[in-house]
Design a protein around this nucleic acid. Structure first.
Lengths: 233, 233
DNA sequence: ACAAAAGTGTTCGGGATACACCCATGC
DNA sequence: GCATGGGTGTATCCCGAACACTTTTGT
């Protein structure tokens, strides 16, 4: 039973929140207030867990504290704990400024979620910095190993998304089939055939037509659909 | 940035090693030496990580120390960290005996793997107790939340197994198609049609026939197959 | 001869894919 | 009337599922 005293790793949670705006996929990033020395780097919302706090609870709290997001259902997907995951001097400096024991390694439990961007104020300012949506195609170099964490999260999201048929709740209550298709395309990052997609949706009866149509568009207005709750009938 | 001093959670790794014996699926458990008071409970191989030790490395070490298993490719699948995951009095007693700071909560990063039982000595004795294979259908009540960990691991194994076509390496170099089918059935825990299974294997060209046949069986001997490396032709 | 497992084909239905043209509206 | 996206049907292929009888060997 090997062990050593005074070994107190920091445990943190990091949240990868994907946001869909009806067109593209984005990630929620935190931009710290500039503390000089070119240290202005974006990072994922994350923080140490508290004594007595569960991991899931910590993720919820962090998201609330750093980005003012509430009621986001996140899924734990991986724990990053290699001893050298923080080795960039800039990152170490940051830890010195913000952490009590900056030299101890940090093990982080990562969560992801997919939300509708319209549901959340796009710029929830916070004492710790500014939260912002970043297009998934234009993610800059992030602090720590956060680029890797985002990559793994995206991979998991894509895998999970094609397996179950979740995600319909990311659209407005009434939506066109094209919007639904765009959602799928944004997440899987591949194009689908319009007719085949519609057939599939109809076959699986996940959606039902309303009598309403789009208004104010400069082309033939599309029929609006809504999510069908019970899959019977 | 909320934090508190002297918060030193224990971080451990736990390993769920599934073993296939050609017929059934088993899990590797540790049976502690009896320390009285009816505390003889089985548990998963697991231990605290060391300072400066990566998570994957810790899992490898633990498996070696507790069960003498080496070169097992494990996959991290979940981190269990709710503050109340250890609340049974028996478990607390155990911690008092074996851990320096038994009152601190334990967060555990769990790994799983699937191995061929024949490759590993079935009873690798160790200073910490005895390692044994337990049929997956007959897993008793385990210490801590290890029953839950096993369940989640089995779920992940099944999901992962049906997605990619891994697992063929769990058989001897030359095997019958029935053995291959039994492997699949053991993992997915459901029965398959013999003819359909064979057609599928042939279609996907994952396997090739040898000229050899079974010997010493009291029925028609089956043809032996081997894994096909390159999937061309 | 008998027991025990090996081995083998066909049919059916459903889902995935590929593909091209007319329709309704705002300007 | 024209630009813009909305909306529709058919043919093919592949896969999964269901299903029963003959063959080969050891004893």
């Amino acid at each position: 039973m090997s062990q050593q005293i005074e070994f107190a790793p920091n445990i943190s949670v990091d949240c990868v929140i994907f946001g869909f705006d009806g067109e593209n996929l984005n990630v929620l990033l935190i931009e710290e207030k500039d503390i000089g020395q070119g240290m202005l780097r974006k990072r994922l919302p994350g923080d140490l867990i508290l004594r007595g706090e569960g991991l899931d609870a910590a993720a919820d709290r962090v998201l609330w504290e750093l980005a003012s997001l509430k009621n986001v259902t996140m899924k734990q997907f991986h724990t990053f704990g290699e001893p050298d995951r923080v080795n960039d001097p800039k990152d170490k400096k940051w830890l010195e400024l913000y952490r009590k024991n900056p030299d101890e390694r940090v093990i982080t439990v990562a969560y992801y979620a997919l939300v509708k961007m319209a549901d959340f104020s796009p710029n929830p300012a916070s004492f710790a910095g500014e939260a912002l949506w970043q297009d998934i195609q234009e993610v800059p170099e992030l602090a720590f190993d956060h680029n890797e964490i985002v990559e793994v999260a995206l991979w998991k999201l894509q895998r999970h998304f094609e397996l179950n048929k979740s995600g319909y709740e990311l659209l407005p209550p009434k939506f066109t089939l094209n919007q639904l298709q765009q959602l799928h395309e944004a997440i899987t990052q591949e194009e689908l055939d319009k007719r085949n997609f519609r057939k599939k949706v109809v076959r699986e009866k996940l959606v039902e037509a309303t009598e309403e149509k789009q208004e104010g568009v400069l082309h033939k207005p599309a029929r609006l659909y809504r999510i069908k709750k019970s899959k019977q009938d």
